[in-house]
Design a protein around this nucleic acid. Sequence first.
RNA 1: GCCGCCAUCGUCUAGAGGCCUAGGACUCCACGCUUUCAAUGUGGCAACACGGGUUCGAAUCCCGUUGGCGGUACCA
Length: 493
Amino acid sequence: MKNVRVRFAPSPTGFLHIGGLRTALFNYLFAKKHGGTFILRIEDTDAARYVPESLANIIEALQWYGLIWDEGPDPLDPFEKSIGDAGPYIQSKRKKIYQTHVSELLERSAAYPCFCTTERLDSLRKKQASEKQTPRYDGLCRALNPSEVKSRLVSGTSHTIRLRVPTEGSLTFRDMIRGEVTFECATIDDQVLLKSDGFPTYHLANVVDDHLMNISHVIRAEEWLPSTPKHILLYKALEWTPPFFAHLPMILGSDRTKLSKRHGAEPALEYRQRGFLPQAVINYIALLGWNPGGDREFFTLNQLTNGFSIEKVNKAPSIFDIQKMRWTNASYLRTMEPNRLAPFARKFVTDKEISDEKLANLLVSIRDRIETLEEIGEWGSYFFQKDIAYDPALLIPAPGTKETALVALIFVSEVLEKMNDEDFTEPVLRDLFVNRIKSSGKKNGEILWPLRVAISGKKASPDVFAMMAVLGREVITQRVATALILAQGLKKA
RNA sequence: GCCGCCAUCGUCUAGAGGCCUAGGACUCCACGCUUUCAAUGUGGCAACACGGGUUCGAAUCCCGUUGGCGGUACCA
């Protein structure tokens, strides 16, 4: 394939979501696979729905996920500067370009001015709907005679420009994922190309820009499939060659409808806050609707690129499963060096001066227990907080009573008394305690359960000896003493 | 309603006419390891939507039905 140029073209009407991220990803993969160019274009032709923060969000999200564009707005100054020669890449800055092409369409009679008011259009639709007809433009202005058009234009009557769609015949095109798709022209509406405010609609701006930016392949979500014939008609009217099209299957929520907040689909960047690794999210969503064919589950962005092929993209929609994404994330976490995890753990550290080394030691035992970075806080709470609070009844081991707990804590205190700071390493502690417990004829659980609770305040925690080594002799002695007092206060079982 | 797309375990998927008594992964369950919870190991439950063709042979090809999704704006 020569000269592959693809674009991701979000509109800044909201934050980037998972669906958009997946579209961006597949465009990126396709471009990189074929040594092509990945372009970011901002489609802000609807002033009414414009959300100012969304541009920054889209840019930041794409960057965080590592989908860096070769051409598009300059991240540092997206409105004023751009990377690449085909810009500007923000459609609101291209208003004049669209208008010149509209003139061309008008001259060729491929489009016509429409003076119908919103009110008339609304009541027309309502009437059609009540008569069980397909709501569509009835072509009133299509038949206006030229002199009438001219006089209305001269008088400055508010109007739009519509595409003159053939009334007969059909239109067939090839989709790279779905094969041949056919639409009857009679079912295609006379689409508005230019709004009365002078802004182009998506359809016009999209076609003009794709042509001018030399886009070779349009890869977008399936929701655009029904408007593709309109776009092809536009290419024809402008005497341009249409690009190749590929319509990606949708990503749905757990109730099989379009993904929304209700399904846990936050803005794509929200997953950063939620403790996900960008490469894990990318890995997971790449496998939604695409598979290189095989059993493999893990791919880096490079490996995805090398294995990518648009023909292997599935046709059926898929459901976003946060559970599997968490599992993917957990798998990535487990391969990480503990000291690389340390920066993420820092935010949980409050009132203590803790060395990176100590933090890394702690993370060794936490790493295998978490699915997201966010959970580090939970699992390390005994470490990050100076004082821990818990229900004293927790100190009693499973088969056992208040006395069992007391005996265990006294046992532990006695062992601790004879220890030095230097003894507080994981192997030494383990060795010592396990041997002592063995020679006293007790079971591990009898002693180590109360000890675990004394240290962590939780029934589920990292390894006891790992916690002891990290916290040090002083803190451990203190917590065991506190636990002893708490245990004594317990009612008799 | 009309138009279009789609259809393998609950979910993500492998499957390009015989390799399929349908494979892998998530979830769930059981067991092993073990000081808890995890991680990990072993095993288990679980699917070709339905009906017709085509063919010696169909999850795979064709048609229909049903179901799901998307579109039907001076939104993208």
